[in-house]
């Protein structure tokens, strides 16, 4: 079971968003996509999710091109959490999370929906908000609700674009633990993330994108180096170990150019 990008190219006008992307992802692992703003992380994620068609190249899911898989089946196998998704109507949190079960409707008879919904809400700590209306939620609560919606799909792949945006430190950890839990159950997890320390601590693999190309990939401690941070992000950083042994990657100052 694998998800793979083969030679992806995406351009808008004369701007190149992605070039020569060749990646293979494995199930049961958490992969972090990092890179500066505009590096192409979200574009790559939406290509992998089948929401955007690359100019050339293709995404393969289990040895089949994504285009050849019917959208209903795709929806059951790939759960997607887009960046900063909005909630347009003032509906109950529970109804929003239940939308995650939509792909399973009509598939192989009646599916039990309550279990996945309740469990998804519990894992990102929104169970107590189930009967709240969307408009009354704070930004972080909304983010967690949307994440619960994506978890409720129970797909074999979970692609999340900045799922930690707007979350407080505790809930960032809760969310990451939930994603790790998914991976432990065999789900392939891809997430776009900006906090490099969290990426270093929670991801099995880190992929660094810069100007539409993959500039590094591998285990965090190999990939996240001082010289890479200088070249890609233009920052001087501190890289060290916390007392417990966790890898810390803390940008300190803009790098001196020259």
């Amino acid at each position: 079971m694998s998800l793979a990008a083969r030679n992806l190219h995406v351009t808008i006008g004369d701007r190149r968003l992605l070039a020569d992307i060749d990646l293979t992802f494995q199930q049961g692992k958490v992969t972090a996509l990092v890179g500066p703003n505009g590096a192409g992380k979200s574009t790559l994620l939406s290509c992998l999710a089948g929401l955007r068609r690359p100019e050339s190249g293709a995404v393969w899911l289990d040895e089949r091109p994504l285009d050849a898989i019917p959208i209903e089946e795709r929806a059951r196998r790939l759960a997607v959490l887009p960046q900063g998704a909005e909630i347009h109507w003032n509906v109950f949190v529970r109804s929003l999370v239940e939308l995650g079960r939509a792909p399973w409707r009509g598939a192989r008879g009646k599916v039990k929906d309550i279990g996945p919904v309740e469990s998804a809400m519990r894992r990102v700590d929104v169970a107590h908000l189930a009967d709240r209306e969307a408009l009354t939620l704070s930004g972080g609560e909304r983010g967690r609700t949307l994440m619960a919606r994506a978890l409720a799909v129970e797909a074999c792949w979970l692609l999340a674009d900045e799922p930690l945006a707007g979350l407080d430190p505790l809930h960032q950890l809760t969310a990451l633990a939930a994603l790790r839990g998914e991976a432990a159950n065999g789900t392939g997890v891809l997430l776009v993330i900006h906090d490099l320390s969290l990426a270093a601590q929670w991801a099995d693999e880190v992929i660094v994108l810069h100007e539409g190309r993959v500039v590094a990939e591998g285990p965090p401690e190999k990939v996240l180096t001082l010289s890479l941070l200088r070249d890609v992000y233009g920052v001087e950083a501190y890289i060290g170990r916390a007392p417990g042994g966790a890898l810390l990657v803390q940008p300190l100052a803009p790098a001196l150019r020259g």
Binding site: A75, V80, P82, L96, G100
Partner: peptide, 20 residues
């Protein structure tokens, strides 16, 4: 009805949920 519900979360999410 169901497609409209999914659109509550925007077009991208709706498509990812299998809405044509």
């Amino acid at each position: 009805g169901r497609s409209l519900d999914a659109l509550t979360l925007g077009e991208e999410t709706a498509r990812s949920l299998g809405v044509r």
